[in-house]
């Protein structure tokens, strides 16, 4: 019984939040990885693309709620998601047309494209703040919980409660759907295969008759979709503030690199490695041991490896360690010069 309580505690505070945050990071990292392998640069503007997608979702949610369009207890944000995905894709394509395309045609070094992406980051960040303002926005509506701690305790009789937030459920389900779709697309469709071929060997892809401009468009469609969904899910789960999305770009890069940049499976695994390390390292294990040890053995203090203040720093520490020890990541990624 006591053992089960400690297990519920871990599920409640580590497994569900870890899966949720990990999914959000994984979706973000997938976007970065795909741009990196196909278009061959590190896109620092990706966080802002996510922010743009979230902003579109928020504005559309407001419009829907204003016109009294509701879907029971289902979050409106998820209903409007397809529309905001389209907006995000259009924005990505416009940015590509007016900015990135030029450097691709010039065959610029990837570091130049990286600096260019910082310009895009500034511009997009400014545009977003100009449109929606810098403040905190909460746009989660509908039923907040799938399972409430109180109900769980009543149902099972455990001391420890288990909560499942709706946002957690939605995040995990949507991530699974998107990832399955993405892998189906990349591995089973002709277009997806040609995209991988293009990222493998551009010259040969050209010789095989693969149209590079089409690949670029598809890349941005995928990236825009992933960015919009990742951003919206993160914003639903926590809250939306343009400022936080700028800082999100680093944990996302961390996830992509830890998994091995250029490898989609790596990006997903990297996302979960980052999220679970953050939680495991900053979790206060006192209550956990309270359940499984007798009072005499219970040590003082919170039993925390690192204070919660360092939560996000954990991802940076892992990032730096991976870069130093094994820059190719867990799954050997692609190295592009």
């Amino acid at each position: 019984m006591e053992f089960l309580n400690s297990f519920i505690l871990i599920t409640n505070y580590i497994i569900f939040p870890g899966l949720t945050y990990g999914s959000q990071l994984a979706l973000g990292a997938l976007g970065i990885t795909i741009v990196y392998t196909v278009l061959r640069f590190s896109n620092f503007a990706h966080g802002e693309f996510m922010s743009f997608g979230t902003m579109s979702t928020i504005i559309l949610t407001w419009v829907f709620l204003d016109s009294n369009i509701k879907f029971g207890t289902f979050p409106t944000a998820i209903i409007v998601l397809p529309l905001s995905i389209i907006f995000t894709i259009i924005y990505c394509l416009l940015v590509d047309k007016f900015v990135f395309k030029f450097y691709r045609q010039q065959k610029s070094k990837s570091v130049i494209a990286l600096i260019v992406s910082i310009g895009v980051m500034f511009f997009t960040g400014g545009l977003i703040r100009f449109i929606i303002g810098p403040g905190d926005k909460n746009f989660m509506d509908g039923e907040r919980f799938i399972l409430k701690a109180k109900d769980f305790k009543m149902l099972t009789g455990f001391d420890e409660g288990l909560t499942i937030k709706s946002t957690q459920g939605v995040t995990i389900i949507l991530t699974i759907i998107l990832v399955v779709l993405l892998f189906w697309f990349l591995n089973k469709t002709k277009t997806g295969k040609s995209m991988r071929a293009y990222s493998d060997n551009q010259e040969l892809a050209l010789l095989s008759g693969i149209n590079p401009e089409r690949i670029v468009v598809i890349t941005w469609i995928i990236t825009g979709t992933l960015a919009c969904v990742a951003g919206t899910l993160y914003g639903l789960d926590k809250s939306y503030k343009p400022f936080t999305y700028l800082h999100l770009v680093l944990p996302i890069f961390a996830a992509a690199i830890v998994g091995g940049v250029g490898n989609p499976i790596g990006a997903i695994i990297g996302g979960f490695v980052i999220s679970f390390s953050e939680l495991l390292i900053t979790f206060a294990y006192k209550k956990f041991f309270f359940y499984i040890l007798t009072d005499n053995f219970l040590p003082n203090g919170l039993l925390q490896i690192l204070s919660t203040d360092y939560k996000i720093a954990v991802s940076f520490i892992i990032l730096v360690l991976v870069l130093l020890i094994k820059p190719t990541g867990i799954y050997k990624g692609k190295i592009i010069e």
Binding site: V99, I115, V116, I118, G119, V120, M121, F122, F123, T124, G125, G126, L127, R129, F130
Partner: peptide, 10 residues
């Protein structure tokens, strides 16, 4: 100003 800075850089 962020838009402005981004534009100048680009």
């Amino acid at each position: 100003r962020l838009i402005f800075m981004g534009m100048i850089l680009l």
